[in-house]
Design a protein around this nucleic acid. Structure first.
Lengths: 332, 332
DNA sequence: TTGAAAGCGCTACCAC
DNA sequence: GTGGTAGCGCTTTCAA
């Protein structure tokens, strides 16, 4: 292993003390005289010693590391989530052991197993993994917190508040006088897409039961949003608002409408979900999710679990914020 | 430590074999009869056993993990780089130990020290850390590969080919008839900003020594690009091309010019560097860097170092690609 | 082919 | 306050 050359024994020998004392100095545990501390530290510096953490882990039965298992994601969401997790983890003295799992369940098994003994707990985001598969893959007794993953057997879980976000946006569209609001949904298998579609239906039913409900199903990408918008244009544009399941679809719709000479927001309002950086540039109204906060909170919950395993599992919703920009607001 | 309940000894007991045999089965080392293998595997499954990797690391002196030390970055660059590193690492059976270092050199020390004994090598991106500080923080004998970091004492290093990218773009601008090309530079302390500015001067000197050279210094963000563009407008726009040090500056310039009624690219061409996702949406010509490839390559070099420490250190440049879009091309 | 046992580097307990 | 040492869970000789 890298850097293993000098061990605690070398330090002890050079300092003229026992390994026990060296350990005490390094861990600030137990009593040592200033003299002892000084000789030990001198030896440490002279040798460029840093302790072997694997050995320490083995001895203390804790690794001071948190496992993070994420799907293969692109862009902002990934970096923000990792940033949040890292921030909270390093504040508490934990390092991150990262593993991307791709669609394959066998990889999840492998990734989780590989973490055994190197982490004190894991944060798992596996929207594509069935609950049973996930639980089988999770090593026995490994504290875990779930993010946007199906089921919640015995673990704390965190979810994006899709329902709250969508409902707020539907409310805004209604408040600004929209009457025929169509939803562009993502693929059915996608957990967030599913929840957002549900939320749209519920919000309409609750806030404006007399108004028509319509869902067009797409795939959460720009091209799909463009195609669906084109379909509406071909129909003679029988709508005055498009609530897309995510920003990329919304942007696709935005471009297509503008290219077709439809004025946004005058004729049609367009709204997204996620608040990707592009949204700000293109003046798209959307729902923003506090991703950094999601990561931070996941760490908090995990630490709580690790320190008191018998907490009843909770599911929390992460905050969501309505971001109103030009794409839904008539100029005043 | 998490999941430590069942050990190799429990498996051995249940299987009716020694721990040595269990180890052999699990590692596919040495000879075992099919019977033995079978009983062992049965016991493993029954107990839900997975080996404690910290113990294995200690015993084998290798951890099958790679340390990744990155600055606190936002967005696409971070996720793409980690994706590339993760992809290559997991293909070779390595896990990633991640640590964000912030500006503080003490944190770098801490992060690197914390990796000792848990990783077989590290990939370090520390553009803000002086070479001496970095080398002091790096535990003795730890194989390391540098990304976009100053100096290269004894380590393989990878850099973005800023010079090549800028030169190609300058060439393109000249080819399309631009004659007064001004460069919007980033902050002087920023390594990439510095290199790109240098490259601009060199490219101009080489390709068009008769043309004027002008650099306006900014800060690599949108507002800065906007401000510098405004300055040019106030001067009566004595340029026909803006080569920004990065995309965000270019976008700031783009908006400001358009709002001022300046037509891009007819009156002024605008080019960036990085190819952020926004660039495609806003039809900005730019230079794209293969970030995933950068990460992948870093892992390859690291594995090479770990397996044959006595290679002479090399510095490689990562490929760069000219992306030509509407912002620099006169419509034909 | 299998088992016993010696470490890997460290921490923590127990004596002094 | 300090040192000796047993173990943490695993791999890997060395004998049998």
């Amino acid at each position: 292993m890298a850097g293993s050359a000098v061990t605690i024994r070398d330090v002890a020998r050079l300092a003229g003390f026992s390994v026990a004392s060296v350990s005490r100095v390094l861990n600030e545990s137990g009593k040592v005289t200033d003299e002892t501390r000084e000789s030990v530290m001198k030896a440490v510096n002279a040798l460029g010693y840093s302790p072997n953490i694997a050995a320490r882990s083995l001895s203390t039965a804790r690794s001071q590391a948190i496992g993070v298992v994420l799907p293969d994601m692109h862009g902002e969401f990934f970096s923000e989530l990792v940033r949040g997790i890292d921030r909270a983890a390093s504040e508490s003295g934990y390092l991150l052991l990262l593993s991307n799992i791709h669609a394959d369940p066998a990889m999840a098994d492998h990734a989780l197993a590989a973490m055994r003994g190197r982490v004190d707990g894991v944060i798992v985001m596996a929207p594509q993994l069935a609950e049973t598969e996930r639980e089988r893959a999770l090593p026995r007794g490994m504290p875990a917190v779930l993010i946007n993953s199906p089921g919640n057997q015995g673990h704390h879980a965190l979810r994006i508040d899709n329902a709250g976000g969508v409902k707020a946006m539907v409310g805004h569209l209604l408040d600004t006088g929209r009457r025929t609001i169509v939803h562009f949904g993502g693929a059915r298998q996608n957990f967030d897409a599913f929840e957002r579609q549900q939320a749209y239906r519920e919000a309409m039913a609750e806030l404006a039961p007399e108004l028509p409900v319509r869902v067009l199903e797409g795939t959460f990408d720009e091209a799909s949003g463009a195609a669906l918008a084109q379909r509406l244009i071909d129909e003679g544009l029988p709508v005055d608002a498009i609530l897309a399941g995510n920003d990329m679809m919304a942007l696709g719709a935005l471009f297509t409408l503008r290219n077709a000479g439809v004025s946004v927001p005058e004729q049609v309002a367009v709204a997204g979900f996620d608040d990707v950086p592009l949204a700000r540039f293109l003046d798209l109204s959307t729902v923003s999710v506090d991703i950094v906060g999601l990561g931070t909170r996941a760490v908090e919950l995990l630490l709580e679990t690790m320190n008191a395993a018998t907490q009843p599992p909770r599911t929390e919703l992460s905050n969501t914020r309505l971001i109103l920009r030009a794409s839904t607001q008539k100029a005043t």
